[in-house]
Simulated scan of single mutants.
Amino acid sequence: MTLSAASPISPMLAKAVGTVPEPDSVPGGLSYEPKWDGFRGIVYFDGDTCEIGSRGSKPLTRYFPELTDAFTRLLPGPCILDGEIVVRTGAPGRERLDWETLSQRIHPAASRIRTLAELTPAVFVAFDLLGQSDTSWLDVPFGQRRTALEELLGGLGAPIHLTQVTTDVELARRWLVEFEGAGLDGVVAKPLAAAYAPGKRVMLKTKHQRTADVVLLGYRVHASGSGVGSLLLGLHDDNGNLVNVGGASAFTYARRLELVDELAPLVLRDDAGEMVRGETERSRFSAGRDTSYVRVRPTRVLEVRYDQMEGARFRHTAQFFRWRPDRDARSCTFEQLERPVAYDLSRVLL
């Protein structure tokens, strides 16, 4: 097979399930592993040079020079690896994954990337072997791919790690609870007898599901120009200030149009009767995008589903659940949020 990002392999994906599935729920059983919260990376090493492709096959190579250097020095031979690029921060014994620090690596300036590679170096957590030398492993059952991965990478050391695996469902359920304290995202279950299926949702993922009552700050118009695209959400901090904590989206076309009329009485207007607009903070991921939004009176409360927090924001886009007309907006504070017990990341990495 061609060991090059010029012929990219689309990563195998996971379907969300509510609970960690029983091992006998699929033929041949399941293998469980932590769900890492970083950049998905497919590593192509031809024996001399290394390239890293993203989930969308976009090149990540230039952003992680410390990893490409490690791959060329440490890998014993040509191979294709599937895994996650993460950054670990914190004092020894209190390390955790740091998404914000990782996201800073997507920067246009090579000098800035080199500096960050030295200050906050990334690590690669491997969880699958897709090819070795000129042999494709895509059609090989996962159980055999995992054994071969351990033989290939065992003992290499940082910054190349193996993800932990188990066939014990009770241990996997413990991981779901404990590993969140180190910044991990949940648990993935992989059919032991399944081949690698590029772009297909063969794996099963279980993530944390929580709800929170939040204040509506405003809404963004949908990219089509019609209807509400997303709702902006806020919580009161210890000083009573409303803090933007993220957004909720994924509304149907009909619901987007309904929300415009539904929220119209709350929209703030200036003396000329024009809608008052605000603008959210820009990031490297929103460069060139319209970050403006229509402001509303912060009096309406809604309940949203979310998985985890990253600092003072929802790590991923929240899901609208229901309006809460019974709640006073002033009562929506950070205190309601469940905080995981801290867990040292070094106990998760192999």
Rank of each mutant, 00 (worst) to 15 (best):
Y44P: 02
T72S: 12
T147C: 12
I80N: 00
V221P: 05
P298F: 02
T101H: 06
A193M: 10
S54L: 13
E178C: 00
P159A: 06
E279A: 10
V187I: 15
L350E: 07
D344Y: 03
I80Y: 05
A126T: 03
G240A: 12
H222N: 13
F124Y: 13
L217P: 04
F39S: 05
R330S: 14
Y343R: 00
I42Y: 01
D46E: 04
E33G: 08
Q144K: 13
L349S: 00
R145G: 01
T115F: 11
T72Q: 12
N244R: 10
Q336L: 03
S292N: 10
G247R: 15
G186N: 12
S57M: 12
G154V: 09
D128E: 06
P27H: 12
R327W: 05
S226L: 11
Y32P: 00
T299F: 05
L349R: 00
W99K: 07
D168C: 06
R284E: 03
D261G: 14
G240E: 03
T252F: 08
G53W: 02
R347F: 04
G225N: 14
D48S: 12
L216T: 03
Q209M: 12
G273D: 07
Y253I: 15
L263H: 02
R322T: 06
R324P: 05
H316I: 01
A172H: 03
T72V: 11
G77L: 14
E100Y: 06
V87P: 02
G311L: 06
G240K: 04
S111M: 05
E151T: 07
C79H: 09
V165N: 04
A117W: 06
V296N: 04
D139Y: 05
E262G: 14
A182T: 03
A248K: 07
L129G: 05
G56T: 15
P265M: 08
L217A: 11
L75S: 10
L130R: 04
Q104L: 13
A287H: 10
V243E: 11
W36A: 00
S31C: 10
A5K: 09
T167W: 07
G234N: 09
G83S: 01
G218R: 15
V260P: 11
F39A: 06
S4Q: 10
D237G: 01
R174G: 07
I113Q: 05
Q132T: 11
R145H: 09
E180C: 00
T147H: 14
L235D: 02
R96Q: 12
F124V: 01
Q319I: 07
P78M: 13
L149N: 07
G273V: 03
I106T: 09
I113E: 02
F334R: 05
D328S: 10
H316C: 10
R305P: 03
G181D: 00
S136W: 07
L268C: 13
P8K: 14
V228M: 09
K190M: 10
A110P: 06
